[in-house]
């Protein structure tokens, strides 16, 4: 009886010990989750608040509300520092390039997903390898090539580069997506005499709508933030995209102007559209990314 008691207590302490370990294993990651969530929200709030503050306020009372809500920083960024022009440039180039990426990659992805020829699989592999080639490998030859045809320091030149840069990932994502669609419907349409073009536009595109929206949004977001190509290819303030304008503004702030409030207003101009798109289409994006990598 006594021995049994000892055994039970022993077992109990062991269990209690195991319990604390399990508890720790359970709780540490959970607090990490909430820590990150809090940090991300805090940084965003800090940015938006700071865009209304004077430099002194930003550093002395970073987390308090601004003493007065005025738009001085925003007008300074938008008008004086050229973010307005840069925003227009970015919207035009990124929108045109992203739509072109989809217009080129959707038909290609569709036939690549349906054909079993050696050519098709070769091309599919080539596009996937394109994802692995970083911009710094391409930037010098592309610069030289565009200089040759007079497209350096021009937004049309950047548009061509962006359209090309967006292609590999979009083809990859959409090929996977088309592969997951049943082929009965299109075969029926083809047999009913709706030529290849009509079958693609009237039957396949509507079916692939959600995949196409995902590809389009991911392309927009990645081109919106692209920096290296824009930095190399654009030389004149009037042509700057938001990334380059932000870097240029960063240098004036560091060389004395010290207007951190306007700098953060500029940063908000870069980030808030992304946030809006994310709130609008976020779940789809996350699913698209997990799907793309699951294949």
């Amino acid at each position: 009886m006594k021995g049994q008691d000892v055994a039970t207590t022993g077992r109990n302490t062991a269990r209690a010990h195991r319990h604390t370990v399990a508890n720790f294993v359970k709780k540490a990651p959970r607090s990490l989750v909430w820590l990150l969530v809090a940090a991300n929200i805090a940084v965003l709030v800090f940015m938006v608040l700071a865009s209304f503050k004077t430099s002194g306020e930003i550093f002395d009372s970073p987390w308090s509300l601004p003493e007065e809500w005025n738009l001085d920083n925003w007008t300074e960024a938008w008008v004086t520092s050229g973010f307005g022009q840069a925003a227009r440039n970015t919207v035009i180039v990124v929108a045109a390039a992203s739509v072109s990426v989809i217009a080129l990659s959707a038909p290609a992805a569709y036939v690549l997903s349906r054909s079993q020829s050696r050519m098709a699989s070769g091309l599919t592999v080539a596009f996937v390898m394109g994802i692995g080639i970083p911009s710094q490998v391409l930037v010098i030859p592309i610069f030289v090539m565009l200089a040759e045809v007079g497209l350096v320091n021009s937004l049309p030149g950047l548009y061509f580069v962006y359209t090309a840069l967006g292609l590999p990932f979009s083809v990859f994502l959409l090929t996977g997506f088309f592969r997951s669609l049943p082929s009965e419907l299109e075969e029926a349409a083809l047999l009913d005499g709706a030529g290849p073009l009509r079958t693609f536009f009237r039957v396949m595109l509507p079916l692939a709508r959600s995949g196409i929206i995902t590809a389009l949004t991911l392309t927009i977001l990645s081109l919106w933030n692209e920096t290296l190509m824009a930095l190399v290819l654009l030389q004149e303030t009037a042509n700057y995209t938001l990334s380059v304008a932000l870097l240029a503004f960063l240098s004036t702030v560091q060389y004395g102007s010290g207007s951190y409030g306007a700098l953060l207003a500029g940063a908000c101009i870069v980030v808030l559209p992304t946030l809006a798109v994310y709130i609008w289409l976020g779940r789809r994006l996350i699913e698209g990314i997990s799907l793309g990598s699951g294949k």
Binding site: L104, P107, A108, L138, V161, A164
Partner: peptide
């Protein structure tokens, strides 16, 4: 269907 995307890929990647 595949040629336009391939052409751009060849010009800017290959």
């Amino acid at each position: 269907f595949v040629a336009p995307a391939t052409a751009l890929f060849v010009v800017f990647f290959v």
